[in-house]
Each structure stands twice: as C-alpha cells, then as structure tokens.
Write a protein that binds this DNA or RNA. Sequence first.
DNA 1: ATGGGTAGCGCG
DNA 2: AAAGCGCGCTACCCAT
Length: 675
Amino acid sequence: MPSRTAPVTRKGERLARPRPLSSTLVTKTVRTVDELKQLVRDYSRFEEFAFDVETVASRHVRSLQTPERKLLSRYAERTALCPSCGQPLPPRRRTYCSDVCQKAAAKDKPALDTRTNTVWCISLAGPGRSDVVPCGHPDSRRQLHRTDVFEALEPLFFSDRRKVNQNVGFDLLSISKYYDDELPPPPYGDVMTLVFLINENLGRYNLGSLSHRYLGYEYAEKLGEEAYRVEFERAMRYSITDAKMAWMLWWKISPRLTEKTRQKLAFLFDLEMDVLEVLLDMRRTGAFVDFQGFRDLHPTLVKQLNDTGAEIKQMVGHEINLNSTQQLGKYLYDELGLPCLWITETGQRSTAAAALKVLARRHKAPRKILAYKDVSKLLTVYVAGFMPHIDDDSRVRASFNQAVAKTGRLSCSAPNLQNIPARYRENTEGTMIRQLFVAPPGKVLIVADYSQIELRILAHQTKDRLLVYAYKHELDLHLQTASLIYKVPQDQVNVEQRAIAKNSNFNLAFEGGPGRIREMSGISLTEAEKVYNAWHEAYPGVKKWGKWVKRSCFERGYVETLYGRKRRLPDISSSDNRLRSYAERQAVNHPIQGTAADIAKIGIVQVHRALQGLDAALTLQIHDEFIVECAERDVDKATAKIREAMEDIRLRGRPVLDIPLEVNIGVGANWSEAK
DNA sequence: ATGGGTAGCGCG
DNA sequence: AAAGCGCGCTACCCAT
C-alpha cells in the first residue's frame, strides 16, 4: 500500500488565490521522470488544480450468452439468432434481437466502465499553465510508464488540494484503480455540478457548450474514446483541452462560491460534493443481484410473451406488430370500430393503458393487449435490457447523476435503478424483479424510506392548519382527509373512501385537477369534482400557498427550496396559456419536490458517515428511499444509526421542518421482502 | 445504417 | 375551463 501522507498545509504558504489567468496557458508535454517531478513540485504550490484522464476500454463485448446457449448456437448457426443474447430473432430484426443487444455488442461502450478501462494520458491545468503526461498512447515515441506517473502524482491527488474537473467522478474512479481502488480524497470541484446549480436550464453541460457559453471559446473536437486511435500530437491537444477548459471554467465561475450574497449556493455546492463522495462509494460497491435469477426469468418471459402474442394475432386475423401504436390503433379503431376516447398530442389515436382499460369493456382484445404490454415491458426493460449491466461479480453499478433533474433529485441510468417495478400488477408478478435484488451471502438488506416526505413538506410550506395538525399529532393523514371530505367521523370511513382520499392527497397537493382524481379512483367526474372542492375546503392553505408561489415566481422569475435551490421558470410570464400553466405547476411543485431532494441528499451524506466503521454499505437511492447492505451482526447498530441520520435534518442549526420527519425501516433477504 | 422525435410506461 | 411534477428506457417510424 502506497503511503498517503498528504503534504502538510501551512495555511498561507500556498498561493491564497492563483494569479490571474493569462489568455493563453503555457502548455507542455511531459516526457521524462525529471520533468514529471518538477511538474509535481510546481502544482504542489496550488490550492486547486484541474485534471483530466483519457482512457481506453480494456474489454469489449459483454456477452449475454450463458455457456449452454453458446454451445447451442454453435450448432445452430444457420438459424437466425441474436449474437448478443442467443435468442431467435423476432420479425423485422436483422442482426440483433433488440437495440439493447446491439448496444451491448457495440465495441467502445465499456470504455465508460471505470473499473476496467486503462488510463493512457493525464493532463493537468492550473493557474497560467497546463501540462499533459502521455503514458500509454500507442505511439512509438518515448512515453512515461503508467506506474511511474501515478506514483509521482500521488502527492497531488492524495492531498487536500481541490481536484477540479468536468464530471470529476468518472476520472476519480478511473484513476482509483492505480491506487489500490482508493479514491483521491475531497475537496472536489465539479464544474458541471456547479454550473447546474447556477443554471439548470442549459440542457447540455458538456465542456464544449459550457466553454462556449462562459468563455466564448468554441472547440469542435469530439474524439471521446477515439482519441486513443488518432495521431499523437492531436491526441495530446485533445487531452489537454479538456483539462484546460475545466480549469478556466472553474476559474471563472467558482468565485461566486465565496460571495457573501451567495451563501446558499456555497452550501448547496458543498452538499453536492459530499453527495458525490457517497455516490462514488456506492458505485464502487454496486447493488448485488441474483444473476442466475435473471437468466432463468428470461426464457420464461419470452415464452409468455410469445404465447400471449400468438393468441392476440389469432384474434386479429392478420400479421400485426403489437409494439406499434399505429398498427394497434388501426386494428382497434378502424377494424374493430371501437370508440376513440383520447388522442395524443400529435393527434394520433391513443393506445395507452388508460384507453385500453376503457375499451376492454366492449371487446376482449384490449385486455389481452394490456397483458402483452405488461410482459413486454418486464422482459425488454427489466430482464433483457438489464442483464448486460450486471458485472461479473453479480453487481450492478449504475450511474447516479447530479446534474439532470431540475428539482435537484438524483437521476439514475445504465441501468435506471430508480424505476424497478414495485406495485401490484394483474398479469405479471409486480415485485419479481425486486426479489432479484438480494443481499450477498452473510448479509441482509436494510431499506429505509422517508414517510410521506413531500406531504410533510407541503404541510410545512403551506402552514395549513389541519395538515400540520395531522403530522404534529402523528395521525393517519389519508384517514383524516377522508373524514373531512365525506364529513363522517374517522372511525366510520370505509376502505374506498380512504383510497380516494389518499389519491386526492397525492394529486391535488400538486395542482392536480378533478380529472386526475377520476382517473386514479375510477369515480364519475361529478363525484371527482365534489372531492376536489371538499379537499380544498378542508385544506384551504394549499391553494392559498399555491397562489403565493405563482405570484412570487412571476415577480422574481424563479422559485426555490428551503435550502435555496433555485428553479428558473421564464415561461411563468409567457402569453401562451399552455406554457404559462405548465410553468405555474412546476413553480408549485419545485419547493416540494426540490426540498425533499435536498433533505434526501443531506440524509444520504449523514447515513454514509454514520455507517463508517460498520460492515454496511449504501447501494441504492430511490429518491426518498435508501438501501444498505449490512452484515447481520451489525444490523441493529446500523438501523439505529440510519434512522437518526435520516430524521435529524437541519437548516441553520434547527430542524428543517416544523413537523417531524419519519423514517420507515425494513430488513430482509431481498429488496421486496425488506420493504 | 444512424439520429431524432413520439408514444408509452416503469418508479418516487 | 381545466390543470401533476420529476426522471430513463424501449420500440417504432421517418428522415438523412
């Protein structure tokens, strides 16, 4: 294990603030160990520096094939089989059975896999200079050895200097391989996250568009992993530009963090960098799944889908692609002559589940189609689409992104672990996928989620008397709502009334209308209107607050969460009714959803800290729900610490809400069981 | 072949 | 008069 002795910082010895940036940074290519040593000495004087690594995939195709299937396909080469998963090709598919398989077979995709990629170049940038250190580009010219480079750079990376980059997490993970999987410590300075806090509406946050916007500098080179294969000088130029741009953007924008008038921004940025640390750790761990379970499920669902499909096609009487909304529409509305109740935004006749459910009363086809869609979704997204993301150690390392959701929530991709099926379903066992998220041997899963956090925030924000009352006295809010709507005592509320009240609470709170209630509860529109009116009569503070938020948004151009996370909504003053109404609903939603996101972020950082020293690790975050895998002997300690860490959320030293935060915790062998 | 837009649907 | 917001992934479809 290499030593981790960070150079002692004697405050004031380093440059307090780097000297002004010249328009052209001096750029050097490092060729010898001596030059490298000098470079490290030079950068040691800086409090913060930018860095960027270039990587290349070490591994190419991730095969979906099981050993048996591989053997089988060897003898069945003549029949059309998907080279990725080995399944027979569906009609209209040429080489791969699905886009997922095609992507899985795409060569360069795994370069993004920070566990297996190889670093072949590192560039650094600081005040007035930028340097590039090639260490593995396929060029005959002399380059430094990778091990020498990482050894020499260690005092820089493993120090309390701020490490700046665009999407710094990727680079940190990429280099951690060369330090026994240890991540360089904070502080971090992620440019993308900083810019996102300042303006969440840019759409694109890549270096090219950011440097164009903030530095007036345009560069078009988009090599990505291709950089490895281009001519040396060009590859070096490409590598250094990213570090340079990251540094210049940080230089330009980060001073805002120290402005007295922007303390909320500074708080949120520090929070995001703390969250980043947690996310990197989560990605290093990964979520353990039952790989064999997925492999077993695949053929079962394929058969189920084929059977259902064949049945429907027989009913239809001719060839039809059941995945095509157009063909489905023709069949339902032209051939069967069923009444069209909804059209889509572009005027197409809707074949969505809601429409099919209504049509099911008049014909048996729609119900079958619903069943087909159910199975199809499960198979394509959650089984076939999921398996390529499972690593060889049976773990899934998804990417949690901090600069996507404008309310400040995390988003999750490759694969998205925040939309794994959970609810009851008629045609497929709704929780079957969650059952495959299991605890590794000797461990259990702890699932902790905030109870009704958005409604609690709504109560806090609106100060509505009865909403606050319910939560302060730990009452059943849905029951209270039912009692208020139907004007009956709480002990006389029936199951159906409570269900409608529950839907009302979740929908009407965020500017939902009567139509929404009708749809969710299956009651008539007049009935739904009554509920709508009664609900707002019971909780008058909600509409009042909504009006105030819209007005304030109109005046300032933005709304914000309790922690000051802003959402700029220029459409709030649009003359287009549709646009303005949309912005108004977003304005009302943001302080709720965004505050919940802030709380969850503070919570996950506190949980991460609280679990240090225990045999327990965070693996997933699903907005208001955290999943921890934990050794059985540490479960009691862990649950207590998790609860404390999640419930004790403060703002300026005081509890963030007037009403308590409540956390539900479950323990089990798999995600479904623990919930 | 590849990219963008649309419809649809999974979650909180 | 009528009104949910926030995401990511898949397949289809049509244009380049």
